[in-house]
């Protein structure tokens, strides 16, 4: 089971980032999350990135894409780069009701599959 992203369901509310951070340190903040929202605002182009153990899951409007270390992140802005320094998603393994990001998202963007 791993997290799946359906990017076109996303509305950019960002609560997944904050829920993920809450899982790790019980505070509300975007800084310690395995998930990162990115946006090119004037183009209305936005999506999510998820730091995994060995890869990066890029949820772009064009669809999901998995990147390996060293691959260039297309369409990601300067503010997105710190994702590489983040902790890898542990799928909230100890949470009985499932990952907090899945529970927090109002639009079903994230799911376990």
């Amino acid at each position: 089971m791993d997290l799946k992203v359906e990017p076109l369901k996303c509305t950019g509310c960002r609560i997944c980032e904050f829920a993920c951070n809450f899982h790790y340190d019980e505070s509300i903040s975007p800084i310690g999350s395995s998930l990162m929202f990115y946006r090119e605002e004037k183009k209305n182009y936005y999506g999510l990135m998820l730091k995994r153990e060995k890869t990066l899951l890029l949820g772009r409007p064009e669809g999901e894409r998995i990147l390996k270390p060293g691959e260039q992140i297309e369409g990601a802005s300067a503010s997105s780069k710190p994702i590489l320094l983040r902790v890898a998603c542990d799928r909230c393994a100890e949470e009985e009701e499932g990952p907090l990001c899945v529970r927090a998202c109002p639009f079903g963007v994230l799911s376990m599959e």
Partner: peptide, 13 residues
């Protein structure tokens, strides 16, 4: 319309 957007933590875009 292209895509809808929601503000922070909003269930209605």
């Amino acid at each position: 319309t292209h895509r809808l957007n929601a503000c922070y933590n909003c269930p209605y875009p």
